[in-house]
């Protein structure tokens, strides 16, 4: 694909702009910003990747992965602002998931140890882990707030913090991982996954593309479940103090 054909494809940006203007939807500014940002960001990434692939230097690969983890942490941490030390918990979670998945992929020779494989797969793993973290933190903070009475009840009867938060923790882990599991049940029936479509368009053998897509799907299953569980078990102890009391302002409400 050339830059000329890419510029023609801007028609797909003009269509929503015209519709928004005609129907007074007020989406013009955001559409233009989103389009300009995506062009700049992706082109920069493209050139950076080209440089990293050509250099074949492990340091650059590690730097790229660290950059992904930093960006994912920056994006996800606002959702868990109420949880003490959430930034470190996210960094630890993303790093663990990345190390776990790459260890299996490279250790068992499933994918070659080249930048061309490591970086895109890391992007999918860390990106998916970030989305899962946001889903989990959203649900977990809302569960804690909604079920504070149950948490206090269990504590008051002599339960431990882990017992007091168990139901909310499990509900949040389930709620955040279910979309990943459910979407895999209908994959290929409703739509072809983006990565597989991209490979087929680029001329790859469709069966090879499917095999690689399956690898990614299984990888994302692990990513989803490990992210939610790890973040959950790292987060819940910070909700309580040494005296097994619910820490924070939400405790006092009744009188």
């Amino acid at each position: 694909m050339s830059f000329l054909t890419l510029s023609i494809s801007l028609l797909f940006v003009i269509i929503p702009l015209v519709l928004s203007k005609t129907l007074n939807l007020g989406l013009e500014k955001d559409t233009i910003i989103a389009s300009v940002r995506s062009i700049i960001q992706l082109l920069v990434v493209g050139y950076v990747l080209q440089f990293v692939f050509n250099s074949e230097n492990i340091i650059y690969i590690i730097l790229m992965v660290l950059l992904m983890i930093a960006a994912a942490t920056q994006n996800a941490h606002r959702k868990g602002a109420a949880i003490k030390g959430i930034i470190w918990k996210l960094i630890v979670t993303f790093t663990f998931v990345e190390v776990l998945t790459q260890t299996i992929l490279l250790g068992l020779n499933i994918t070659p140890a080249t930048a061309q494989y490591i970086i895109p797969i890391s992007g999918m793993v860390v990106g998916n882990s970030m989305v899962l973290s946001i889903l989990f933190l959203n649900r977990f903070t809302s569960e804690i707030e909604t079920h504070q009475d149950e948490t206090e009840l269990i504590l008051s009867l002599g339960g431990t913090p882990k017992q007091a938060i168990h139901t909310q923790l499990i509900a949040s882990i389930q709620a955040s991982t279910i979309p990943t599991i459910e979407s895999q049940k209908t994959i290929g029936l409703v739509q072809l996954p983006g990565m597989m479509s991209g490979q087929i368009i680029a001329g790859a053998d469709p069966v090879q593309a499917v095999l690689f897509q399956l690898l990614v799907l299984f990888l994302l299953l692990t990513t989803a479940v490990v992210t939610s569980i790890m973040l959950g078990y790292l987060s819940y102890p910070t909700l309580f103090n040494q005296r097994m009391q619910l820490a924070g302002s939400a405790v006092e409400r009744d009188e």
């Binding site: 206090e152 008051s156 009867l157 002599g158 139901t167 097994m244």
Partner: peptide
Amino acid sequence: PVELRRNVGMALQKATMISGSVRKNLELP
């Protein structure tokens, strides 16, 4: 804390229940 809370029992005006049966609530402690 656990020892204290088992020895100093408390029943509040708002009778909080955990989801499930009477038995599940009754044997919760």
